[in-house]
């Protein structure tokens, strides 16, 4: 199986590569369109600020490529947010894969949300053998509201979508590579889709 982690300069992608290795697979880091097109599974990571990450995607032309992919694609954290229509962070347009906008938590709660919170209303093969209310590690200041695209929900200030799915595109707000053994299980489920 060929696994490509899209390497467009945003964030700590080493951890995802290590986690995949712990699961017994090898992943390559690449921003080469041919490598990405040939992959069986594509992971779209992202940490940092949305508008600068989007700029890097546009510079490499990946903003055009990613929405056309047909194999399973998993956006992680900011990766998931960039797959949406628009983000309030840096007021940037996204890839438009998920028809929903990313908004900021209010000051009624500490921002960023940082730490372990539960995921529930799990509704995808991604969560096979994962218990309702399992803990995942999250770090984010912006969130995706709950819509029919949600395949997992988390509560922080409001109930929001902590995972999304449309066709072959998946997104998780939490970091499966940093969420202990159950996070690794979700990553494994994705690789086995």
């Amino acid at each position: 199986m060929k696994i490509v982690i899209i390497d467009y300069g945003a964030g700590n992608i080493q951890s995802i590569q290590f986690a995949i290795k712990r699961l017994g697979f090898d992943a390559i880091l690449s921003k080469d369109p041919n490598e990405i097109l040939q992959a069986d599974k594509v992971i779209f990571p992202g940490v940092g600020e949305a508008s600068s990450a989007m700029k890097m995607l546009i510079e490499s032309g990946l903003n055009e490529l990613i929405p056309t992919l047909t194999q399973p694609v998993l956006g992680i954290c900011l990766g998931m947010q960039l797959m949406c229509n628009y983000s309030e962070e840096g007021q940037t347009k996204g890839l438009g894969i998920f028809d929903v906008d990313v908004i900021k938590f209010s000051n009624a709660v500490k921002v960023p949300q940082m730490g372990w919170n539960t995921i529930f209303n799990l509704n995808s093969k991604l969560f096979e053998t994962i218990n309702e209310k399992e803990y995942m590690y999250l770090v984010h200041s912006f969130y995706v509201p709950n819509t029919n695209l949600a395949i997992a929900t988390t509560n922080y200030e409001v109930n929001y979508a902590s995972a999304l799915q449309r066709n072959n595109f998946y997104g998780v707000q939490f970091h499966p590579e940093k969420s202990g053994k159950w996070g690794e299980k979700i990553l494994n489920n994705f690789l086995n889709l």
């Binding site: 080493q14 290590f18 940093k178």
Partner: peptide, 8 residues
């Protein structure tokens, strides 16, 4: 450490 552990 990053290669070994699965928490932040």
């Amino acid at each position: 450490v990053a290669a070994t552990i699965n928490i932040p």
